[in-house]
């Protein structure tokens, strides 16, 4: 099976979400190869899980004040703050039959590619079901998977650096205002690559790229002009729309 690999790119939240959907549809229609892509979020953004309430999870006014985007994902899972400089994200989009039918096992397969990359970078990490990866008992990567029209989409985030103050200024972890106690508590639960290895984000990306593509017949290419146009339309008409983002 040949795979398409789209190298590290910087996009806004709406483009990133629309890209996964457009690529999924193209693969479902046999118009695109199974695809692996890497990306960052610019500007920084908060994404919430499909079944969460935007207003319960996100301080929308604070996001507007700080120029941080907010978007609802098609996948389940929790609210995530995607820092412009502190994160690296990936998507794996492929026909379901390339993976095990068991959802948790398929999480483990793809998360295993991240664990393997970490290992080559000197970071000891483990898959932590349902959908996390932990290093030293703390979360270092969160992942979410959807299956639709026979296509598996798994996207996830790898924490490279932490900006907890900014993270908790936009995420409503509790109704209380941000407090030192809460940040301390988060520090006990969350970690990042820089706490385990003195590497650049580029080195992290190279490690992930090598691990994700290992043993696969890969073709490195960009999104087609048609895909870019479709992604732009979908981003504008759906992922930026209040109807989608505030539907729960």
């Amino acid at each position: 099976m040949k795979w398409r690999v789209i190298g590290l790119k910087e996009h806004d939240a709406y483009f990133n979400m629309a890209a996964d959907e457009v690529i999924s549809n193209k693969i479902a229609e046999n118009q695109a190869l199974p695809t692996i892509r890497f990306y960052t979020w610019k500007p920084g953004a908060v994404s919430i899980g499909h079944f969460q309430s935007m207003l319960d999870e996100v301080d929308v006014e604070k996001c507007k004040e700080l120029g941080i985007d907010y978007v609802r994902r098609k996948t389940g899972g929790g609210a995530v703050y995607h820092d412009e400089n502190g994160e690296l994200a990936y998507s794996v989009i492929a026909p379901e039959e390339l993976f095990t039918k068991n959802i948790i096992e398929s999480y483990e397969v793809i998360c295993g590619w991240i664990v393997n990359a970490f290992s080559t970078l000197g970071i000891d990490a483990q898959f932590a079901p349902i959908n996390d990866i932990e290093a030293g008992g703390k979360k270092i990567s969160g992942n979410a998977q959807s299956r639709s029209r026979g296509i598996l989409l798994q996207h996830g985030t790898i924490l490279y650096d932490l900006n907890l103050e900014r993270m908790f200024s936009v995420l409503k972890v509790s109704s209380e205002k941000i407090s030192d106690k809460m940040i301390k508590s988060a520090k006990e639960r969350v970690t990042c690559v820089l706490e385990h290895a003195n590497i650049t984000r580029e080195q992290l990306y190279k490690g992930l790229l090598k691990s994700f593509t290992e043993g696969k017949d890969c073709k490195f290419e960009e999104l087609s002009p048609e895909e870019v146009r479709m992604i732009g339309d979908l981003a504008q008409n759906e992922y930026k729309a209040d109807k989608w983002n505030f539907m729960r």
Binding site: G49, F51, Q52, S53, D56, G76, A79, I130, R147, R248
Partner: peptide, 15 residues
Amino acid sequence: LRILGDFFIYPENAL
């Protein structure tokens, strides 16, 4: 009635 949270449901449009 609204069921909310950070769980997963497959298919997603079934909730």
